[in-house]
Each structure stands twice: as C-alpha cells, then as structure tokens.
Simulated assay, not measured.
Amino acid sequence: MPTNQEKVSQLLADSHFAFINSQNNESLHLANEAIRLAPKKPDAYQCAGDAYMSLGQKLKCNCMHIIIILLGVVVKYNCINSDYY
C-alpha cells in the first residue's frame, strides 16, 4: 500500500502530465487532491496555479502563488507579469 507521500507524488506527476497535455481541468482536480492530502507541499499549489493560469483564472493563480510565498518557497511563475493575459 502506498504511503501518503507516494500518493501525493503520484498525484503531482499526474497533474503535471495532464497540464502539459492541455488537460487543465484534470490537472487542477489532481493538484487539489494533492493539496488536500499535503496542504504544506508547495509543489501542489504550483500545479494548481499553473492550471488556473491556463484556464485564464488570474486571481486564483495569484492566490496559489501567495500561498507558496507564505510557505517560504520561491515562485516559479509570476502570473502578474505573464504573457498569458
């Protein structure tokens, strides 16, 4: 039986895979499940933020990045200066 950490890692891998295949709703769903299981894992918020960005939901994307900052991690993408908008 996989550990919680292994489940979260698999969810994040699946979320990233869905994102790169433009399955943004599925990517967001998987990222949110990872957040539910590991609310202090910044990678889960990054995946959710990427999905929100691609779905055109700038405010939610920015909220995910604020959470990452509050968790003490450098944000990989900056939705405020993104060419997506």
Results as ranks from 00 to 15, higher is better:
1 M>Y: 10
3 T>M: 09
3 T>S: 15
3 T>N: 08
4 N>V: 08
5 Q>D: 12
6 E>V: 06
6 E>R: 09
7 K>D: 06
8 V>Q: 08
10 Q>I: 03
11 L>M: 04
14 D>G: 02
15 S>L: 00
15 S>K: 00
16 H>N: 07
16 H>S: 07
17 F>Q: 11
17 F>Y: 03
17 F>I: 05
17 F>H: 05
18 A>Y: 07
18 A>D: 11
18 A>F: 06
19 F>A: 15
19 F>W: 11
20 I>T: 14
20 I>W: 04
21 N>L: 13
21 N>Y: 09
21 N>C: 05
22 S>E: 14
23 Q>T: 02
23 Q>K: 14
25 N>Q: 04
25 N>T: 05
25 N>I: 03
25 N>H: 07
25 N>D: 11
26 E>G: 03
27 S>I: 04
27 S>K: 01
28 L>W: 02
29 H>P: 00
29 H>L: 09
29 H>W: 00
29 H>T: 09
30 L>G: 00
30 L>H: 00
30 L>Q: 00
30 L>W: 00
31 A>Y: 00
31 A>G: 05
32 N>R: 10
32 N>Y: 05
33 E>H: 11
34 A>F: 04
34 A>E: 06
34 A>W: 01
35 I>F: 07
36 R>I: 08
36 R>N: 11
37 L>E: 14
37 L>R: 13
38 A>V: 10
38 A>N: 06
38 A>H: 05
38 A>E: 05
39 P>D: 07
42 P>D: 10
42 P>G: 05
43 D>K: 06
44 A>W: 07
44 A>M: 09
45 Y>P: 11
46 Q>Y: 11
46 Q>R: 11
46 Q>P: 01
47 C>F: 00
48 A>F: 08
49 G>W: 04
49 G>N: 04
50 D>A: 11
50 D>K: 04
50 D>F: 13
50 D>I: 07
51 A>Q: 06
51 A>W: 03
51 A>H: 05
51 A>I: 09
52 Y>N: 14
52 Y>I: 03
52 Y>F: 15
53 M>R: 09
54 S>A: 15
56 G>T: 10
57 Q>M: 10
57 Q>V: 03
58 K>M: 12
58 K>A: 12
59 L>I: 14
59 L>T: 13
60 K>G: 04
60 K>A: 12
61 C>I: 02
63 C>P: 02
66 I>A: 15
66 I>Y: 08
66 I>M: 13
67 I>P: 01
67 I>N: 07
68 I>V: 14
68 I>M: 15
69 I>C: 15
69 I>R: 15
71 L>M: 12
72 G>L: 02
72 G>C: 06
72 G>S: 04
73 V>I: 10
75 V>A: 14
76 K>V: 10
76 K>W: 05
76 K>L: 11
77 Y>P: 00
77 Y>N: 13
78 N>D: 12
78 N>M: 01
78 N>L: 01
79 C>V: 03
79 C>F: 02
79 C>G: 05
79 C>Q: 05
80 I>W: 03
81 N>I: 09
83 D>Q: 06
83 D>G: 04
83 D>C: 02
84 Y>M: 10
85 Y>P: 10
85 Y>Q: 07
85 Y>D: 12
85 Y>L: 08
